[in-house]
Nucleic acid binder design. Structure first.
Lengths: 128, 128
DNA sequence: TAAGTGTATTAACATATATAATACACTATA
DNA sequence: TATAGTGTATTATATATGTTAATACACTTA
């Protein structure tokens, strides 16, 4: 699996999920983990498309998603930058964590595991 | 959201996910939770299709998926039945739980949460 | 003015999902 | 034996989604 480093973000695309979703996830993840500074210039749509070997439209769609959620800001003619507001990142990180917990809980309860059993399983799980 | 009860299984389909996937999940969930006995006759392809208001092909696809994983057995001309082997159910339940845990762990670590933080969040989470 | 930004539009294509219609093979039973 | 009810298979069609491609336009900087 080919891995691309750019602007402090590691991109790795696989064909099992939509490319634009993976780009969104990986930019968002880098921001949530504090691996990218605020107000940093992102690679241009065309540049990232070329690096990732996808169509510029696919990158644009990802950037627009990220802008809609406030993680990126774009200036026509200048480029796309990471947000200036740490609180945006914190809020979205919290939202995504809540969502992951909700979905995980639903999946486990659908399989008939109690909350206690889930806690026990999580404790022994190797956390990657 | 309309809810259909048949053969001890509750079906509830929403249009945001493939119907055949939801049918598979809900049959599998009922088996995993022990809500359906072994060797029980399932509704026929046509009957379930009519109840759920989907095409018979869609139900057939779900039944075939479930048969491939060993949870259902079909006899041409007679019908489709739940497996005779409790171990099949146990194994698949375990596989699905492992998968859910892996994916949840990946999502949370991608957001920069440590294992300890995840455990703490899970403890306070309301488990539905 | 030129080059590099983001943006918009339209077309084309592949794939997945779902429906529809039809036919066939097998089993149980009246 | 005939019939009805099983699962199964095939083909066609429609729709939505994801992706690529080509092109054009607006804005900013140098």
């Amino acid at each position: 699996m080919e891995s691309i480093q750019v602007a402090g973000i590691t991109f790795k695309l696989d064909p099992t999920k939509p490319f634009y979703e993976q780009i969104v996830e990986q930019v968002r993840g880098a921001l949530a983990r504090g691996e990218v500074a605020l107000e940093v210039r992102m690679p241009s749509v065309r540049e990232l498309a070329q690096l990732l070997k996808v169509n510029p439209n696919t990158v644009m769609r990802a950037y627009q998603d990220l802008e809609r959620s406030g993680l990126l800001v774009t200036y026509r003619g200048q480029g796309t930058f990471t947000t200036t507001k740490q609180e945006f990142i914190d809020n979205i990180r919290q939202e995504l964590a809540d969502k992951a917990i909700r979905e995980f809980s639903k999946a486990m309860s659908q399989l008939g595991f109690t909350h206690e059993q889930v806690l026990a399983l999580m404790e022994e799980a190797d956390y990657q």
